[in-house]
């Protein structure tokens, strides 16, 4: 589904990603962990098509197509979804109209007829229930005045509505209390299927107790320095990142 090869990217002339390799298949959940500033969120932004990132080398193929060649809206229509670390507040755009517009553009792109008002409403109710999203928030302006937890739950509600094949969750757990974390995780677990995949970017192992990953990768200094199964996350929780930093430094020294 997604294949990243030797991806290099920079922002404001600073090299952030220095050769990422990652393959994600349908049905898989990948966790990407790593210390602050290792490039986790940058990877998410590059994949979603944020314009201030410049790809300097490497390739990304998504469903066999060149992802890097697409503008952000095309990536979304092709089935990529980024749950933002900091969802944007947009006063004056109602949550529900925003979703209606997004869903209708995605469906049109895929050659599907737009949902009529009734079908849309039914879908919206069903998904609200699924991710336990407050009906009052649905009709408010997009994220305006939402608490941190409400914003994150709105991201998961949007995820449920747009039904992407690949969802990237960028530190969705940050700023969530334990109840919100449980609700968000349950939502994601309900949305998991054999046809879709998730990349979960997180700083802490905590989230992975709820959403159990198939693979765990550690990103450090713009590279994936270690990959493993969910046990790796537990090891990181116990030992921190320092041992990996040293390991990677040694590796760097030996390659020189």
């Amino acid at each position: 589904m997604l294949s990243i090869t030797n991806l290099h990217a920079e922002v404001e002339e600073k090299q952030i990603l220095k050769g990422i390799n990652l393959t994600v298949n349908p049905g898989e959940v990948h966790a990407i962990m790593g210390p602050n500033g290792s490039g986790k969120s940058s990877l998410a932004s590059v994949l979603a098509g944020k314009e201030n990132y410049r790809v300097t080398a490497g390739e990304v193929s998504f469903h066999g197509k060149d992802l890097l060649d697409m503008d952000p809206e095309t990536r979304a229509r092709e089935g990529l979804f980024l749950a933002f670390q900091y969802p944007i507040e947009i006063p004056g755009v109602s949550n529900i109209n925003f979703l209606k517009t997004a869903l209708s553009e995605i469906r049109t792109y895929r050659g599907l007829t737009p949902l009529d008002a009734k079908e849309f409403l039914r879908l919206s109710r069903e998904k609200q229930k699924l991710v336990e999203f407050d009906a009052n928030l649905v009709n408010r302006s997009l994220n305006e005045g939402f608490s941190g937890g409400e914003k994150k739950r709105n991201e998961i509600f949007q995820l449920a509505m747009l039904d992407p094949s690949l969802a990237i969750l960028d530190e969705t757990d940050s700023g969530l209390d334990i109840d919100a974390l449980r609700i968000v995780s349950q939502g994601v677990n309900k949305l998991r299927s054999a046809d879709n995949a998730f990349i979960i970017i997180t700083h802490y192992q905590r989230l992975l107790e709820y959403i159990v990953p198939d693979f765990v990768h550690v990103l450090y200094n713009g590279r994936i320095v270690k990959s493993g199964t969910k046990e790796l996350a537990l090891e990181l929780e116990e030992k921190g990142y320092d041992w990996l930093k040293e390991e990677s430094r040694e590796k760097a020294v030996t390659t020189i």
């Binding site: 944020k50 952000p72 809206e73 979304a76 925003f98 517009t101 997004a102 553009e105």
Partner: peptide, 21 residues
């Protein structure tokens, strides 16, 4: 970017933002 990342085309996204303003 937020709107475009949800599949809304650039022109429609601008229209939404102007209407919101």
């Amino acid at each position: 970017f937020y709107l475009r990342a949800r599949g809304i085309g650039e022109a429609a996204a601008r229209a939404l933002l102007i209407n919101a303003f």
